[in-house]
Structures are given as structure tokens and as C-alpha cells.
């Protein structure tokens, strides 16, 4: 039996909506002074209730999330914007602390939340490999040992002694990914980094991630909106919805679930100025659908067979 390397137990994270504090030091002090004397918050508007230190509402980015991950597993985490995917990775990578619950981890965690983190534009590619590797938790010897491999993977041999500010964005991204992919960590967190780079490099990255898990026995948590990537490299998948786990299981089933989730249930339905459409999607049809959630209602279809869509509008 493969051992569990990550155990997430009742993890919750809340954020306060609106302004943090009262905005100024004097007002914060007034509130603090009133409270220490047992008086109500002097800045409270009539009708507002005093709940602790916070005026605004609380948003639960994650609420009671529990799951476990086995060693060597590639777990996909999908969900709409604001579902809590990035918050989950941030807690796992210790960028921010949870509000409740706990996470138990076995092994080193390296996060690849955004490529090029900590790159200094004035430094050369070589210097940045060392700096970035160290930021991600490698020691100097580890980086030195992997140096050639990293440079070869990034395909930047010729430019290794050029400051990275002169790099093209593609070279920059390739170098950054290469450093992170060669980390000697047992667990790798990946958030949406494959949206950059050309098709060939994306393929290479996906291949590398698959190798990392299957050949080296490392565990990967992969957050993405790219359903094809998720279904091709993940062995299991979690669908988050408003900070809770909606479903978890095999990638194809969960992706199907994701694409069909909305308020009314199993159907996907959308409306905009230009188009009004809804239907039941088969998994085969959505193999090439991508949903850009930053632009409301922008759907791109490539091999969509509209004859198979059962329209109900």
C-alpha cells in the first residue's frame, strides 16, 4: 500500500470582506481603547452589530475541506474562480496560515504557483537558477548537481550568462519551470503555470510532471482550468465549489461534473448579449472545450459536435 503523504483535515480559511481594520491608526486605537474598557465600538453605525474586531462580512474561502493524497499520486484540483483552489495551495505551501483545521505533510513541499518567482531581472540566468532554487528550498550543492539538466531542459544554454531582463518571456518561463521541475522535493504544487509557453513546451512540461510522479514517485497537486491537461496527467481529481469539496474521484467523471455544475443542476446553461444556449454535454464532446472564466461567457469550441448537444432552451 502506498503511504499517505498529505492529509488535509477539516481545513478552513476565512477572509474578511471590505476594509481591514478601520483604515487609520487613530481609529484602531479608539476601538481598542473602547473595548478594553468594555464599551461598544464607537465607530459602529447604528443598526450594526458588534462582532469582535470585524466590521465587514466574512468570506469562507475554504470550509471543512478534508482529503488525503497518496505518494506518487497526481491529484487535479478543479473548480470555478473563487472556489478556493488557490487558497488551498497557498495554505499547503505555507504562504498563509489556515483559520481552522490542519494539514499534515510528509516530505518537502515545493510550490510552483507562478513561474519566475524571485527572479531578479538584473542577474544572469545562471545566478537566477541558484537564487530561485534556493528560494524554492534547494541547497547550493543540489542546484549545482542539477544545473546542466536545468539549463538543457529550459533550452537556454546560449543565454545562460545574460541578465534575464533581456530574455524573451518564453525563455524566462522555460527557465523558471525548469528550476522548479528539478526540485528534489517529495511534493510539488502546480498552479496554472502551463498557461504560458508554446504548445511544444507545454507538452514537455506535462510530460515532465507525469514522469515526476510515475518514475520518481513524487506527489503532484495540480490546479488548472485546462481540462485536457487534468484528464491526461491526473489519476484523481477534486472539484471545489464555494470552498467545499463538491466531488472527488476519477478525473473524467469529475471534469464532467465540473462542466455540468451550476445552480439548476446537471445542465450547463449560459446567456449573454449574443448567445443563449444550454444543454447536456457528453464527455466526448467536451474534450476540447475551454472556458475562460475571466471573460464572462466566453467559450471556445474546437471540435464541438453541436448535433450531439441536446438543447433544451
Amino acid at each position: 500500500m502506498t503511504p499517505t503523504v498529505i492529509s488535509v483535515e477539516n481545513l478552513s480559511k476565512s477572509y474578511r470582506l471590505g476594509q481591514i481594520g478601520t483604515g487609520t491608526l487613530t481609529n484602531d486605537l479608539k476601538v481598542w481603547w473602547a473595548r478594553t474598557r468594555g464599551k461598544p465600538n464607537p465607530l459602529l453605525k447604528i443598526g450594526q452589530t458588534d462582532h469582535g474586531n470585524q466590521d465587514g462580512e466574512t468570506l469562507w474561502a475554504l470550509r471543512d475541506v478534508s482529503f488525503t493524497v497518496q505518494q506518487g499520486e497526481v491529484l487535479g484540483i478543479i473548480g470555478r474562480n473563487g472556489a478556493g483552489k488557490s487558497t488551498l495551495l497557498k495554505i499547503l505551501s505555507r504562504v498563509t496560515a489556515p483559520t481552522g483545521g490542519c494539514v499534515k505533510v510528509k516530505g518537502r513541499i515545493a510550490s510552483l504557483l507562478e513561474v519566475g518567482t524571485g527572479f531578479h531581472p538584473e542577474l544572469t540566468g545562471r545566478e537566477n537558477i541558484y537564487l530561485n532554487g534556493a528560494i524554492l528550498g534547494m541547497t547550493k550543492q543540489e542546484i549545482a548537481r542539477k544545473f546542466d539538466e536545468i539549463v538543457a531542459f529550459a533550452e537556454v544554454e546560449k543565454f545562460i550568462d545574460t541578465p534575464v531582463k533581456r530574455y524573451s518571456s518564453g525563455m524566462y518561463v522555460r527557465l523558471a519551470f525548469a528550476v522548479a521541475a528539478h526540485l528534489e522535493s517529495e511534493i510539488l504544487l502546480v498552479d496554472e503555470v502551463l498557461a504560458v509557453g508554446d504548445a511544444e513546451f507545454q507538452k514537455k512540461c506535462l510530460g515532465k510532471m507525469g514522469d515526476v510522479a510515475s518514475k520518481e514517485g513524487r506527489t503532484v497537486l495540480f490546479v488548472s482550468h485546462n481540462m485536457r491537461a487534468v484528464s491526461s496527467i491526473c489519476q484523481s481529481c477534486i472539484l471545489l465549489l464555494s470552498g467545499k469539496i463538491q466531488s472527488q474521484g476519477l478525473p473524467n467523471i469529475i471534469i464532467d461534473d465540473y462542466l455540468s455544475v451550476n445552480e439548476s443542476g446537471l445542465n450547463y446553461r449560459f446567456e449573454s448579449k449574443y448567445i443563449k444556449w444550454g444543454g447536456i454535454l457528453n464527455t466526448e464532446d467536451i474534450s476540447d472545450i475551454s472556458i475562460d472564466e475571466n471573460i464572462p461567457f466566453l467559450f471556445k469550441f474546437t471540435t464541438m459536435d453541436f448535433n450531439n448537444v441536446q438543447s433544451f432552451l
Binding site: T4, I91, G100, C102, V105, G107
Partner: peptide, 24 residues
């Protein structure tokens, strides 16, 4: 976690890192 008996949890492994809300 009583509802889903997880063998790994019962083993109570030596976790290398525990992420909790408040630190000392």
C-alpha cells in the same frame, strides 16, 4: 475523520510538517 477510517491516519506516521492555524 472517524467516518472514513483511513489506515494511514491510524498508523499515525511521523509527519514532517503540520500546518496549523496558530503557531507558538
Amino acid at each position: 475523520m472517524d467516518t472514513s477510517p483511513n489506515p494511514a491516519l491510524i498508523e499515525d506516521q511521523d509527519w514532517s510538517l503540520v500546518i496549523k492555524p496558530q503557531r507558538n
